[in-house]
Computed example of a mutant assay.
Amino acid sequence: MLYQQGKTRSELVLQYELTPSALDRWIKQYSTTGSFKTKDNLSTEDNELLALRKENKRLLMENDILKQATLIMARKSQ
């Protein structure tokens, strides 16, 4: 990383036309997790929220399938 190799914040901001806050966020992410990827830098709460949303989507899909199966079975029994 250029920052770790001795380039100053101001040099990097000017050279790559960044905002100081974006550079600071990237430096923090890289020093914390070694990655710039958003998924690698999510908080515990964010990861939990994503898991809950995924589970909710799965449950809604299962519910729709069961509703359709109920309708099919009701038609067959008539």
Rank of each mutant, 00 (worst) to 15 (best):
K39F: 12
E17Y: 12
I72L: 11
L71R: 15
T8K: 07
N47I: 12
S10H: 10
Q5N: 13
R25T: 07
R25E: 09
S31F: 11
S10G: 04
E45R: 14
K67H: 08
T19P: 01
K54Q: 07
M73F: 06
K67C: 03
N47T: 12
S31E: 15
R75G: 03
Q5A: 04
T8L: 01
Q5E: 08
M61N: 15
S43F: 02
E17F: 10
S77F: 14
T44E: 13
E11H: 03
L2Q: 03
T70N: 15
D24L: 04
K39C: 06
L12K: 01
Q78V: 06
K57M: 08
N63Q: 15
T32G: 00
Q5W: 10
S77W: 12
T70R: 15
L2R: 11
E45G: 08
L50N: 11
V13C: 06
G6F: 00
A22Q: 15
E62V: 10
A51L: 13
K7H: 14
M73T: 09
M1Q: 12
G34F: 00
K76E: 10
T8S: 05
T70G: 12
S35I: 02
S10R: 11
I65W: 01
Q68A: 13
L52G: 04
R58H: 09
E62Q: 14
T33G: 04
D24N: 13
G6Y: 00
Q4L: 04
K67F: 05
N56Q: 02
M1Y: 12
L66Y: 13
Q15T: 11
T33Y: 08
W26K: 02
L71D: 15
L12E: 03
V13Q: 07
N47A: 07
N41I: 03
K76P: 03
E45H: 12
A51H: 01
S10Y: 13
E48M: 03
R53S: 06
T33P: 02
M61S: 14
Q15F: 10
M61I: 13
T32E: 11
W26T: 02
L49W: 09
R58W: 02
S21I: 11
R58C: 01
M73Q: 13
N63V: 07
V13K: 09
K37R: 04
K28W: 09
E62F: 15
S10W: 12
A51K: 14
A74M: 05
S31C: 15
R58Q: 05
S35F: 02
Y3S: 10
D64W: 01
T38E: 05
E17G: 04
Y30K: 05
K57F: 13
S21T: 14
E48C: 04
L59P: 01
L12G: 03
S10A: 15
P20I: 04
K76W: 09
Y30P: 02
S77V: 14
K37T: 03
E55A: 11
R9L: 07
E45I: 13
I27Y: 05
K57T: 07
Q4W: 10
Q78T: 06
K28N: 13
Q29T: 02
Q78P: 05
S10L: 11
L12I: 06
K37F: 02
M61L: 14
